[in-house]
Simulated scan of single mutants.
Amino acid sequence: MPRRFLQRYMPKPDTLRRQRSLRFMAPLIADPGLWLLTRRSVANAFSVGLFCAMLPIPFQMVVAAVGARLSRCNLALSVSLVWITNPLTMPLIFYGNYRLGTFLMGAPVREAPSRISTRWIAEQMHDMLPPLLVGSLVTAIMLALVANIAIRLIWRWHVSYNWKRRRLNRRRRRARIESEFDD
């Protein structure tokens, strides 16, 4: 089941509670409802984590943890999925979000100079921020919805597949036992 696969890679709540740097989050970590691995909690954790990953804001992990708490989904998954936008992927993802925002708003695309500086970014931020936010929100909502539906469908398919496999194995055992008695 997907549950076994996920449990193999998830951190244990007790291990996290013992870490000195996470003691301030002990009440959040201690809630057993935030560590469940059900179809609903995993699908919602993917939605929360991917939604927060697409937002161009600082402290995405904190926002994902609060979102996991509010939606009662798996805390570890929602916080870890935020790392899809890491320092290597963030420029590409946010540039794509910016381009989507300019397309949706009908705004002109600001071309980058040959040398990008923090001064140029600060000067252009007024014009670039609205399309970036619009594109990021649209991407975040669409990705969260698609991920939620996909996880639920994959989970359902996996459970159905296991049921069929077990049923087939029972029939084979039964046929083997009956053939032994017939001999």
Rank of each mutant, 00 (worst) to 15 (best):
residue 29 I to P: 00
residue 48 V to E: 03
residue 58 P to D: 03
residue 15 T to D: 13
residue 13 P to Y: 11
residue 10 M to P: 04
residue 24 F to C: 06
residue 35 W to G: 07
residue 57 I to T: 15
residue 61 M to K: 05
residue 58 P to H: 04
residue 48 V to S: 03
residue 29 I to E: 12
residue 35 W to V: 00
residue 16 L to A: 07
residue 35 W to M: 08
residue 16 L to C: 01
residue 15 T to P: 00
residue 22 L to G: 02
residue 39 R to I: 02
residue 34 L to F: 02
residue 24 F to R: 13
residue 13 P to E: 15
residue 37 L to M: 14
residue 21 S to N: 12
residue 36 L to E: 15
residue 61 M to S: 07
residue 54 M to T: 01
residue 10 M to S: 15
residue 44 N to L: 15
residue 25 M to E: 09
residue 12 K to T: 11
residue 44 N to F: 09
residue 34 L to H: 08
residue 41 S to L: 10
residue 58 P to T: 09
residue 47 S to I: 01
residue 17 R to P: 00
residue 51 F to N: 10
residue 45 A to R: 06
residue 56 P to C: 02
residue 26 A to H: 15
residue 43 A to L: 01
residue 51 F to I: 05
residue 14 D to K: 12
residue 48 V to C: 02
residue 52 C to G: 01
residue 11 P to A: 09
residue 50 L to H: 04
residue 59 F to N: 03
residue 20 R to H: 13
residue 48 V to G: 03
residue 58 P to Y: 02
residue 58 P to M: 07
residue 21 S to C: 05
residue 37 L to F: 10
residue 36 L to K: 13
residue 38 T to I: 00
residue 22 L to N: 05
residue 23 R to F: 00
residue 56 P to S: 05
residue 20 R to C: 07
residue 20 R to E: 10
residue 25 M to K: 02
residue 57 I to M: 09
residue 12 K to G: 06
residue 36 L to H: 11
residue 56 P to G: 04
residue 12 K to M: 10
residue 48 V to A: 04
